[in-house]
Design a protein around this nucleic acid. Structure first.
Lengths: 154, 154
DNA sequence: GAAAAATACTTCAACCTTGAAAGTTTATGC
DNA sequence: GCATAAACTTTCAAGGTTGAAGTATTTTTC
């Protein structure tokens, strides 16, 4: 064998990273989905919408939700519909623009989300406990930079 | 203000990491989905199944696929059904156990996957280009450790 | 070897998701 | 002002996803 033989599979580091990242995300997401369902009778997509609305107490447009959550418009329509019939969310008309309506949490929605958010935070701490806080911070800022670059390009 | 006042929001590093990781994964996944669709008329779940079968040329059981891809059994049934009608996959009976069948790529499936895999690898390189190879390796091994710990505990 | 348990898979209802098409309303150009 | 474009949302079909229930087969237990 030639001592100078180059590696047969070079520059695959990013591909491997992507695969592992995806699998880790799936594992954690599956666990969260299950706990939300059993402990709060809640789905992950609905939790995500409520989370966005909890940050924006004055409400959001459907398109705001769609953009923020990175999902399609039609998708948000269905999820909000179900949250409305759950009694956690309301659509209210907006003065001066009859195309849009503002989506807000109801009081029941705020109370329920606060409960879930508290549990959710603990679950994440538990599920990611094997990642040191140091690593978490470094990785987190790496991902922030990644996202910033992405936003700048798209 | 008390100089010793502790941070109001401590130990949120992992939560922030999780949120950013999820968003990054969604951005990349959305891009991959769109490219697979427009350039290969292929969905991401079907690509994932073909990818698993390409690694295991002798074929896999449905339950192997389910376990490997981290999705439910019923889900795999549907995706494989569609891949069979696409002509990319076959189910063949297995001697000695009539509960199971071996799922394999057809020759057309192997050829098609090889084309897609090549493009896919380039896409990942492109999409993750802002992550240095050094960072990619470090993060990758961090995620590997995370997954190993997870497996050990579950 | 019959009964019970375990294994492998499919079916199904409910929900999530996308992308395209269509509806409504508002803004723009002339 | 009127036509056109743009913006915002919903609808719909096709597909993905889960978890529970059901079917079939094999293995285990006694």
């Amino acid at each position: 064998m030639d001592a100078m033989t180059p590696p047969l599979v070079a520059h695959k580091d990013r591909l491997r990273l992507w695969i592992r990242l995806l699998r880790a995300a799936r594992v954690v997401e599956g666990e969260l989905r299950e706990r939300l369902k059993t402990q709060f009778e809640m789905t992950l997509p609905r939790f995500d919408v409520m989370s966005a609305l909890y940050r924006e107490r004055d409400g959001m447009l459907m398109s705001d939700l769609s953009r923020f959550l990175l999902v399609s418009n039609g998708n948000v329509t269905g999820i909000v519909d179900r949250l409305v019939s759950d009694g956690f969310v309301v659509r209210s008309n907006r003065e001066g623009d009859r195309r849009t309506s503002i989506v807000r949490l109801t009081e029941a929605g705020e109370i329920r989300f606060a409960e879930m958010a508290s549990a959710h935070e603990n679950w994440i701490e538990e599920l990611l406990k094997d990642i040191s806080e140091e690593d978490a911070r470094r990785l987190s800022s790496m991902l922030k930079a990644f996202r910033s670059n992405w936003e700048a390009e798209h």
